[in-house]
């Protein structure tokens, strides 16, 4: 059985190939065309695995670009895919927090890995990877550098939830000579608070997993654990969780 799971996100496109017990993965920027990105990912995975297109039994697509590449294979929502992957990685987890490029979500699952409830951020970038990316730009950093540049002991609170207003708040703080490291800690706390409120709305039951690209940021990880008062499980390759779930769904079908 050879299946591919694709997660075409707003920033990055992730692919997982499950090849009889072996797993291959690839990631590229989504760019402007979800369709091209999915083609490129499939080709990459075929190259890595040395398999041929005709050998593929199934392709499952998820992520915001899922509709655009429909036809490539079956479609499932990110919510179902994250639940499926986490059920495989951490069967004891009942709550999943996923923070991606353009949305953050909290998913409650039962013992069989089925989604029983979920919440997503509203029409706003607050509490998402995009929020952090824009703030990183304002600070002259790449989003991947935020975690290592944080200084928790100098933290200043960022009050604006709105991305646009938060950006001007930061520019104001910088002008007043506030340390970058403290501002970064404040940004992480802001995302942590926002997402923690969503977690509490859905309810915590059992252990919590943290997935999505933003889970790679140790500052957000710390802030979220602090807000929730418990430890979070982060899978290795947290960005690939959705794609893994998609591939696993393909394996089962």
């Amino acid at each position: 059985m050879l299946v591919v799971g694709l997660d075409i996100g707003s920033v990055a496109a992730k692919g997982i190939m499950l090849d009889r017990g072996k797993m291959h993965r690839a990631m590229i920027p989504t760019g402007w065309s979800p369709r091209d990105a999915s083609e490129e990912l499939i080709n990459k995975l075929l190259k890595i695995s040395g398999c041929k297109r005709e050998q593929l039994d199934d392709i499952i697509v998820t992520g915001y670009g899922r509709i655009a590449v429909a036809g490539a294979g079956q479609v499932a929502t990110e919510i179902k895919c994250h639940a499926r992957a986490v059920a495989e990685l951490y069967p004891q987890v009942r709550t999943i927090v996923d923070i991606g490029g353009q949305d953050s979500k909290v998913i409650r699952v039962n013992g069989e890995g089925r989604v029983i409830d979920f919440a997503m951020n509203d029409k706003c970038a607050a509490g998402t990877g995009r929020f952090l990316q824009i703030m990183a730009n304002a600070l002259g950093l790449d989003v991947s550098e935020l975690g290592e540049n944080e200084n928790f002991s100098e933290m200043v609170s960022i009050n604006s939830m709105c991305t646009v207003f938060a950006e001007s708040e930061i520019i104001g703080l910088l002008a007043r000579g506030t340390s970058k490291a403290g501002i970064i800690a404040g940004l992480h706390q802001s995302v942590g608070r926002r997402v923690a409120a969503m977690v509490r709305r859905i309810g915590i039951d059992g252990e919590i997993a943290f997935t999505g690209g933003v889970a790679k940021n140790p500052g957000v990880h710390r802030a979220l654990e602090e807000e929730l008062g418990c430890q979070l499980l982060i899978p290795e390759g947290c960005q690939f969780t959705g794609a893994l779930g998609a591939a696993l769904l393909g394996q089962n079908s």
């Binding site: 929502t77 919510i79 979920f118 997503m120």
Partner: peptide
């Protein structure tokens, strides 16, 4: 954004 929520509900 409505669509993904609705699809997840139906799932």
């Amino acid at each position: 954004t409505l669509k993904v929520r609705i699809e997840a509900l139906l799932e």
